[in-house]
């Protein structure tokens, strides 16, 4: 079977982002960009399913500007067989991303679409669910464990109450939680090999998807600052401070 992996490029998770003083956005110029951590986990899971002989081909796909090619090459170096780059300079909102991914799904006919549960830039947590809905197929979000048996997958989901197990018929959309796996490191020879792997580019306009700036962002602000705290010297001082506030 074929697995399609959504592979978004975002500001690296270790970067402490800054809001522009005029409120027009966050500073992204000169900031380190990386694969969305959840998407690395999605790719790793797809590769493991291929290692087990369950999947035969792993395709990574991204929507983004022309310079996303290097990002996709990373996915290929990690082990994906092919890459698809939907080229757009616009910021892509989840509904548009889901509509675009549906077009790729129709073209590629994967049995599993693996996506991260959320992108760490917009923190939306929507694209996988929207894709499953538009596609009319099952979803298993926040996956902590995935087992594929023939025409169905058994997925353990990390939910607020604990661990929920769902059985979904394939094809299906699965979104990854943090503890699904530990993504592999890219080795130098694989970077060389990745250069000759197929990378298809598609202009966003050619997908026939209505883009739509569904939600308009009018202003960016830094979060409210907490007032400066105090250091206490021992437990007695801490307890009396908390007692004074009526907290203990």
């Amino acid at each position: 079977m074929k697995i399609l992996v959504g592979y978004k490029r975002v500001v690296d998770y270790n970067v402490r982002i800054q809001v522009k003083p005029d409120g027009s956005g966050v500073v992204t110029e000169g900031v380190k960009l990386s694969a969305n951590p959840f998407d690395d986990i999605a790719l790793e899971e797809a590769l493991r399913l291929r290692d087990k002989g369950i999947a035969t081909e792993v395709v990574v796909a991204t929507l983004g500007p022309a310079d996303c090619q290097a990002h996709l090459r990373n996915g290929l170096a990690m082990g994906a067989n092919r890459a698809i780059h939907v080229v757009t300079d616009q910021a892509v909102q989840p509904l548009t991303a889901a509509r675009a991914l549906l077009k790729l799904v129709e073209k590629e006919q994967p049995q599993i679409v693996l996506l991260g549960k959320q992108a760490i830039d917009d923190d939306a947590n929507q694209t996988g669910q929207m894709l499953a809905t538009l596609w009319g197929r099952p979803q298993a979000t926040f996956a902590g464990k995935v087992e594929v048996n023939g025409d169905h997958a058994t997925v353990v989901r990390e939910v607020d109450a604990g661990l929920e197990t769902l059985e979904v018929q394939l094809p299906a959309v699965i979104t990854t939680d943090l503890r699904l796996n530990e993504p592999r490191f890219i080795k130098l020879p694989d970077i060389m090999k990745a250069k000759s792997k197929p990378l298809e580019t598609i202009a966003f306009a050619d997908l026939g998807v209505e883009a739509g700036d569904h939600l308009k962002t009018s202003h960016y602000a830094p979060p409210a600052k907490r007032s400066k705290g105090v250091m206490v010297k021992d437990v007695a001082e801490l307890v009396s401070a908390l007692k004074a506030k009526g907290l203990v």
């Binding site: 909102q93 509904l95 947590n125 929507q126 669910q129 929207m130 538009l134 990390e158 939910v159 569904h214």
Partner: peptide, 21 residues
């Protein structure tokens, strides 16, 4: 919550609208 995050984007997609998370 995990309940709402799982469900509401599906509702939004069926209604053809974006979701405010």
């Amino acid at each position: 919550t995990t309940f709402g995050k799982d469900l509401m984007p599906c509702v939004a997609a069926l209604l053809g609208v974006a979701q405010v998370s």
